[in-house]
Amino acid sequence: MTSTITPDTSATVAISVEEQQFNDLIEADSRIEPRDWMPEGYRKSLVRQISQHAHSEIIGMQPESNWITRAPSLKRKAILMAKVQDEAGHGLYLYSAAQTLGATRDDMTDALIAGKARYSSIFNYPTPTWADMGSIGWLVDGAAICNQVPLCRASYGPYGRAMVRICKEESFHQRQGFEILLELMAGTEEQREMAQDSVNRWYWPALMMFGPPDDDSPNSAQSMAWKIKRHSNDDLRQRFVNMLVPQAAVLGVTLPDPDLHFNEVTQQWDLGEIDWTEFHEVLAGRGPNNAQRLQRRRDAHEEGQWVREAAAAYARKQYALTTTLEMAAS
C-alpha cells in the first residue's frame, strides 16, 4: 500500500508527544476519535472531504427525485422514493460526522447554498429520461460504492462509521439501477434506445467521479498518508471499469469507449482518453445544471426557515413551561 509517504511531520523539528501519539495511531492502523489531538491539516482535510461528500448526497437527491412523480410503475415509484430518501439519510450521517470536528450543519448548509462549497460534479447533469434512473443507480451509485467501501476504513472513526452505515444502505441502489436498465433492454425498441442513450451520457461522467488522474491530484498523497483515503483515483477507476465490462455484457449495452480493450499483460481493461476539459468546465460551474441544483437547495432551505424557527420556538416555550411548573411544585 502507501506507507512510503510519510505524514507531514517536519524532520528537523522534534515533534510533540501528542503528534507522536497521532502518528503512532495512524501507523498502527488504529482510529482517530473526535477528542484526540490531530494536526490542523488533518482536521481541515477531513472537514473538506466529509462536507463535500455530504453535499453530494443532498444535491444528488435532485436528479432522481425529478422522476418520483413520473415513475412508470408503482413498484418503481416506491423503490425510487426509498432510494432518494436513503440519500437524505446519507447526507445527514455525513454532516454529523463532520460536526464532530467542529463544523455545524447550519454552517455547512450556508456554505453550500452560497455556492462556496463543492459537491460531486456528476449531479450537475440532467435526467431527461427514465433510463437515467437506471444509469444513475448502475454507474453513479456503482462508482460511489467503489469509492466508499475503502472509506469504511478511513482513519477518522466517525467518518468510517458513517461510511459503514452508508455502504450497507447503498447495496440496493446499484442493483435497482441495474435492473431498471435490464428491464429496458428486454423491452421495446424505444426502451432499448432510451437505455443505450442514457448509458452513453453517464458513462464518462461516472468515470470522472474518481477524480483527476493521480499525477494531477494535489491532495491525494497526503490523504493517503493519513489513511483518510486508501486507494489512488486511477486505481479505483480501473477496478470500476473492470467490473463494468462484464455487467454491460449482461445488460447488452455498449460502453461508449471505442478504445476500450482487454490488456492481456495486465489482465485489465485499458480505457480510452478521458476528456478532462469537460470535467473542469462542470467543476468550474459551467455544467448543464449547476445553477438550478443550488437554487433548488436554496429554495428548500429558505422556505423551510419558518418551520425550523417555529419548532425551535415551541421547544423553548415548552422548556420554560416545564421549568415553571417544576419550580411551582417544589
Binding site: 473526535p34 477528542r35 454529523s96 467542529g102 455545524t104 450543519r105 447550519d106 452505515r165 425550523r308 425551535a312
Partner: peptide, 28 residues
C-alpha cells in the same frame, strides 16, 4: 463533540437496541 449553541435545532445522539436482550448501541 458536535453540539453548538449556534444551531437552530440542537444535536442529539441516538442509541438503538437492535434486539431484545441486547444493549442500546450508539448509531449516530
Amino acid at each position: 463533540p458536535g453540539d453548538s449553541a449556534a444551531e437552530i435545532w440542537p444535536l442529539w445522539e441516538v442509541f438503538v437496541r437492535s434486539n431484545r436482550g441486547l444493549s442500546h448501541v450508539h448509531v449516530g
